[in-house]
Amino acid sequence: MKSPAEQLKSRYLDGGWRVVDQITLSSNHSGGNFSAGYVVENKDGRKGFLKALDYSRALKEPDVALALRAMTEAYVFERTLHEQCKASRLSRVVTAIDSGNTRIDPGLAGVVEYLIFELGEGDIRKHVDHGNKIDLAWILRTVHNVSTGLFQLHKIGIAHQDVKPSNIVVFEKGDVSKLTDLGRAVSENIPTPSHIDRPYAGDPGYAPLELKYGHKDSRWEVHRYGCDLYLLGSMIVFLLTKHGMTSNVILKLNKAHRPKFWSGDYFSVLPYVRHAFNEVVNELKDLILVKAFEDEIIEVVRELCDPDPRLRGHSKNLGTANQYSLERYISQFNLLTKRAEIYMMTGKKI
């Protein structure tokens, strides 16, 4: 039987919205909660993506009250983050344009809470696989957009924690990319619900190396912003190899040194991880076909994904209060994108 969150199709919602079609099944992939995804249309012609919270899942938990509380807290927390983002007019973060609830049935979990977001054209996986022109300029532009989104979040004290291909949505036929899904985000300023406030609540397939080994730096910015920097670098790796830094490095590690088999602390395995990381980074060079850009891009990946989170960040910022700031990278990606565009058009490097 369908849960209330899966019964929204064709319903009219407050604010002039009509639910057009369901596009994702109920799952908890995108946040602390189970949710279903729909395309919605407004009377004024705007389209949106609706994320419907599935409270009925809580009824299947052993402690229903606790589960309901956790889901509610997560929803409220995410909504608060989106309100903050909306107020700050973040241009490279998919923000909620509306929120509300609708009652489907009179039961305990019959109310469906929802958030409505601007509707993109799908995530970058779809974009790269559907015959679009994928060249170095596009890759750099996408990375520039994602780093801008992260920077905007960091400026208001939010660490995204789940940057991955499915959370990068393209707009304007791929010219613009935005970060989506704050379901795993944490805030420096707003208390984070306990079930999200784990060392790493994001997608374990992309988790930073130190967190795969259970190492968490005690300093918030090293832990949280260091994680975001790693995930950003990992997206460059994804755009070059179709999978992230973590799987690339684990593949290079001797079985004995992989997270599953290592029993020591992170700093005792770090020399092996670093060695494997260097192998991965060196092999990336072959994938950057425009050699004029090779060194700079590789250096950026090296800095963003350094296996030691204490060493991440722009080389000129190391040891400063701005170590985890993405500002320098944004300028760098911007410049690189422009150089790549000119190179792609003229064949001349600048």
Partner: peptide
């Protein structure tokens, strides 16, 4: 659950990036 989601997505889209995303996550 993120892996299950990726596997479901692969079944729907059947393109290289979805295959890569699911396979690498399962490996990790």
């Amino acid at each position: 659950p993120s892996l299950e989601k990726k596997i479901q997505e692969w079944k729907v889209y059947q393109t290289p990036s979805f295959a890569a995303d699911a396979l690498s996550s399962a490996f990790v």
